[in-house]
Amino acid sequence: MSNNVVDSAGYAIEGVDLWKTFYTSSGGIKRKRIKVEALRGLTVRVPKGVIYGLLGPNGAGKTTFVKIITTLLLPDKGDARVLGYNVLREAPTVRKNIGVMLSVERGFFWKLSGYENLLYFAMIYGMPRREAEERVEELLKLVGLKELGGDEKHFEDMSLGMRARLGLARALLKDPPVLILDEPTLGLDPTSARRLRNLLTDLARRQGKTILLTTHNMYEAEEICDTVGIIRKGKLVAEGSPSQLKRMVSEYYSVRVTGRGTREVFEETGRYIVDKYSGSRYKVVARENERLSLIILSPVGSEEQILAETVQKLVDKGARITDARIIEPTLEDVFIKISGEEP
């Protein structure tokens, strides 16, 4: 690890120029050595108090990065810090300040209850027994496991949703300022996933916790992340808020107004907008129930302004509007365009 001086002011998590190569082997008698470059100069900076989503296709290096910043894995080169503490030289302090959730399905004693499992880990992290008991009770309520009987249920009998909540409770045992979650909603049903997302949002907004999560779920990243980083082949290839990223791949604003009226009215309105905003294009599309949609693509002006003007013009010409919206590219479009792969 290099001795790069890193200014960590304002950053909860910081990985600078991280490199990691793994060597595996395959074959029976004649073994073949395989070199896998998991990280190739990855730099990620997560400001304090935000929810940061790390996206990337399988094998992009997300989990390797998570393992490095959680002190579970040593990088070959580069500098990594959590709240300014070096993950190599100050590993015990880093561990005190982070809560980690790596897998929803496993990671607990199968024959022990939710309460027993949490109490075990609280004591493993150095919490005195009495304090641990109180904290576990508090967390079981916070994550909603108490009301589901998850405190007494053995881990093996828990649903995936309950396991995810238990995992989050463990990550919160030390009340750490930083939470690092590797695909926390993987395999969860939509309701459980939404509950977990709500919990995470609450933790960030109300308690000011910094959350780094890796995910394949674009909807999730779009819904709860303040900042999203996309990594590909061990490097950060894009970063920004979901709307900034979407703008990166979209050259045109897209506005769609649907309603009832004559085609002439819709065509005239389209021409009016195109004349006013140079470089714009329009298209009128027939919909079911004798409705029409006017779609405008514009590289200039704001989408809100164009939408408002289009609606106003159509109404003035006697059309009845049933739907009006700005059509943005999804984060999935961004991901596919930037990473070149399906999420």
Partner: peptide
């Protein structure tokens, strides 16, 4: 069990554990 990383996250070393 999948608990190894969580054990390694204890402030003590894995050898001590």
């Amino acid at each position: 069990l999948g608990t190894l990383p969580y054990i390694m996250l204890s402030p003590a070393s894995l050898v001590a554990y």
